[in-house]
Nucleic acid binder design. Structure first.
Lengths: 199, 199
DNA sequence: GTCTATAGGAAGATAGAC
DNA sequence: GTCTATCTTCCTATAGAC
């Protein structure tokens, strides 16, 4: 096989691990299957990573950052506030429907991190970033539309992050495409209500 | 060890498995550790269950039914509608705070079921029961308070189930007790708004 | 029904040649 | 840096005595 600097191999193996784990689940993904997915031998894996845990740490930070990027890109300013919120949810939702396994993986990795001594921080970082992400989005919305919020930004951000998380998991388990139009409408109305100027 | 009919042993092993899995996580719980937790030898395990998978099936259905019971008992009628909703959330939340590992386990089992061929139905059953549970609770509220809903019961039920799920997971990851009072208040206000008579 | 002992396999990690 | 071969450990499941 072609030689490659260690840092690049690490990225390649991390990406391969994400593909393998999204496809097979975290529990069934072995160091061997990751090496195979990347097209290298097992020793190359252990040349780049001291242990499987070290790889999983890279996987978690990588996929978390990836997720944040996805959501950030989902929210583009539109004509009205309600339109912006609705379109943002829709864009996010389209991504979930197109890549369910990848989103499932984020939940599995959270569980993994919470159960692995020393990895709890990674799960917390993941969910803190979600919170910060929504905080940014709300601030942006607030400035663009000159809003006063009915609830503190921190509360709203955390609520939105948790709600999106719950709705996503619910969809991953139950599917049922049609039901979601109504639910997204309800959510949109609620959010629009929470951020509508009251003065 | 004392002899015991097979059905009772199955229950004993299932309960032991739930304790072990709540404590150590699904991934790290072995048939050996379950047998040890139950105080029997490994062979007893395999006398009662053909395989580890068969036990996990029992664990999933048992803990799902347990969860449903918890939530059902959380909602008792109070003076006002808002009080009832708020107290219901509070009672549920107190249970989560008292038994975080048990709730974590429900998430792990969902992931397990979704990744295990032939077990997807168990994950779906779990989330369908959550939905039905909220449907019942809403119907009860509606009759007791003579309400008209702003959204269909099915939509509201699914929304509530998903939201509770997301908030719980968020709490399990981030902790941060104080933040939740405000969030529960926001949720309560929202729910009360959705179910308030509009005629 | 319950036990001890073990078969059989798979996974993480390493050794040493190239 | 990459390879093949192997070490070591731990798991699920079974065999067979009591």
């Amino acid at each position: 096989m072609a030689r490659m600097p260690s840092a690049q191999r690490r990225r390649q193996l991390t990406e391969a691990a994400i593909r393998a784990m999204a496809r097979d689940g975290v529990a069934k993904t072995t160091t061997r299957s990751i090496a195979a997915e990347a097209g290298v031998s097992l020793s190359v894996f252990h040349y780049c990573f001291d242990s499987k845990q070290e790889l999983i740490e890279a996987v978690i930070t990588t996929i978390t950052d990836h997720y944040v990027t996805i959501v950030k890109e989902a929210l583009k300013p539109r004509e009205t506030l309600e339109e912006t919120v609705r379109a943002g949810f829709q864009a996010y939702w389209d991504h979930v429907r197109a890549h369910p396994d990848e989103h499932m993986l984020t939940y599995e990795l959270t569980q993994y991190a919470l159960r692995e001594p020393g990895f709890e921080q990674l799960a917390r970082r993941q969910y803190e970033l979600y919170g910060e992400l929504y905080t940014e989005l709300i601030e942006q919305l607030r400035q663009d539309n000159d809003l006063r919020l009915r609830v503190p930004v921190s509360v709203l951000a955390r609520y939105l992050a948790a709600m999106t998380d719950g709705l996503t998991l619910n969809y991953l388990v139950l599917g049922d495409e049609e039901a979601w139009t109504d639910i997204l409408d309800t959510v949109t109305a609620h959010v629009a209500g929470l951020v509508t100027a009251e003065g």
